[in-house]
C-alpha cells in the first residue's frame, strides 16, 4: 500500500517481490528515481575482430519501458546483453566503453557478473523454462542466492512472483507439473516469474513475444505494463506496434549505430532521422 502511494506520488522506490519497500534514505531514493538507471558512453561490442556496436551513448530511464527497435542484425540484442554482461558468455566477445548502473561501472573488475545478473534479470526470445517443476523453476533463483531460509519464505516468494507474472491462478493447483508442460505464453510468463523471484531492479526482454500467438502476446504486453511500475524494463522487439504500445522511450538502431532515441510518441509520430522514418513506415527492414 505504502509502495503504491509513493509510486502514485511519482517517486520510484525499489520494492521486494513481497511488496516490501526496500529501506533507504529519502535522498537516495529520490536520486535513484530521477537519475537514469544506466548511463552508456561510447559502448562498443566486438565479436572477434568484427565491431557489432559502434560507440553507443544512451541513458536508460529509471522507470518505465525502453524499447530497442531496428532491423535484424542492427545490434539491438547485442546492446541489450551488455546490461547483464551476458556477452561475457560468448567466446571472443569484447565490450569497451562505460556502462554505469546507478553510477557504478558494471564492467569494472570488482563487479561480479553473477551478482549483477541477480539485479538485472533477463527474458529470452524463446521461452526457456528449466526442465523442472513450475515451483522449482521459480524457486531456483531464490535458492541459489539464498534469499529464503525457510520453506515458508520460499513458498511465499514463489507465490508472489507467480502472481506478479499473472500466472498464479492458472498454475496454483499444479505447481509440481513440469514447466515445459505449459503453453508458450504461460512458459514466457513463468520465465518472467522466475526472473522476478530474485528481486531484480531491471528486467531485460529480448523479443519476448516473437514466439507467441496474438492472444498470448496481448497478455504479455498487459503484464509488461503492470511490471513497469516496479521494474526498469528494457525490451527488444521486432514489432513496431508493440514498441508503440508498451514503451515510453524508443531507441532505433541501424547497422550497429544508435540512430535516434526519444520518447516513443516522438519516434513514431515525428522521427527526425530519415532512416527511422523509412523503418517505421515499412520502407526498410
Amino acid at each position: 500500500m505504502e509502495a503504491n502511494a509513493i509510486q502514485d506520488s511519482g517517486l520510484f522506490r525499489p520494492v521486494t517481490p513481497g511488496g516490501e519497500v526496500i529501506k533507504m534514505s529519502e535522498k537516495r531514493a529520490h536520486a535513484l528515481a530521477v537519475e537514469p538507471k544506466f548511463k552508456c558512453r561510447d559502448v562498443r561490442v566486438f565479436y572477434g575482430a568484427t565491431e557489432a556496436l559502434h560507440g553507443i551513448d544512451m541513458d536508460i530511464e529509471n522507470t518505465g519501458v525502453t524499447a530497442l527497435i531496428g532491423p535484424s542484425g542492427c545490434g539491438k540484442s547485442t546492446f541489450l546483453r551488455v546490461f547483464n554482461r551476458m556477452n561475457d558468455t560468448i567466446p571472443n566477445a569484447r565490450v569497451t566503453g562505460d556502462i554505469l548502473m546507478d553510477g557504478e561501472n558494471i564492467y569494472d573488475k570488482k563487479i561480479d557478473p553473477v551478482l549483477l545478473r541477480a539485479r538485472v534479470g533477463m527474458v529470452f526470445q524463446k521461452p526457456n523454462p528449466f526442465p523442472k517443476s513450475i515451483y522449482d523453476n521459480v524457486a531456483y533463483g531464490p535458492r541459489i542466492h539464498g534469499l529464503a531460509t525457510k520453506k515458508n519464505d520460499l513458498n511465499e516468494i514463489v507465490e508472489t512472483s507467480l502472481q506478479k507474472a499473472g500466472l498464479w491462478n492458472e498454475v496454483k493447483d499444479r505447481l509440481k507439473d513440469p514447466g515445459t508442460s505449459l503453453s508458450g505464453g504461460q512458459q514466457q510468463r513463468l520465465v518472467i516469474a522466475r526472473a522476478i523471484a530474485v528481486s531484480p531492479e531491471v528486467i531485460l526482454m529480448d523479443e519476448p513475444a516473437s514466439a507467441l500467438d496474438p492472444i498470448a502476446t496481448a497478455k504479455l504486453e498487459e503484464l509488461i505494463d503492470e511490471l513497469k511500475e516496479k521494474f526498469c524494463i528494457v525490451i527488444v522487439t521486432h514489432s513496431m506496434a508493440q514498441a508503440a504500445r508498451v514503451s515510453q522511450k524508443t531507441a532505433f538502431f541501424h547497422l550497429g549505430d544508435l540512430v535516434e532515441y526519444d520518447d516513443t510518441e516522438v519516434i513514431f509520430k515525428n522521427p527526425k532521422d530519415q532512416r527511422t522514418q523509412d523503418y517505421i513506415t515499412g520502407r526498410t527492414g
Binding site: N84, M86, T89, V114, L115, L116, R117, A118, G121, M122, F124, K126, N128, P129, F130, P131, Y140, G141, I144, H145, V191, R194, A195, V198
Partner: peptide, 23 residues
C-alpha cells in the same frame, strides 16, 4: 544440451559452475 537452458540459469545469477552442475 540446449544453450538456452544455460542462458536462463546464468541470467538468474547462477555462476557458470552452478549452471553446469544444476542444469
Amino acid at each position: 544440451v540446449s544453450p538456452s537452458i544455460v542462458d536462463g540459469a546464468l541470467s538468474l545469477g547462477a555462476s557458470h559452475t552452478q549452471a553446469v552442475f544444476h542444469h
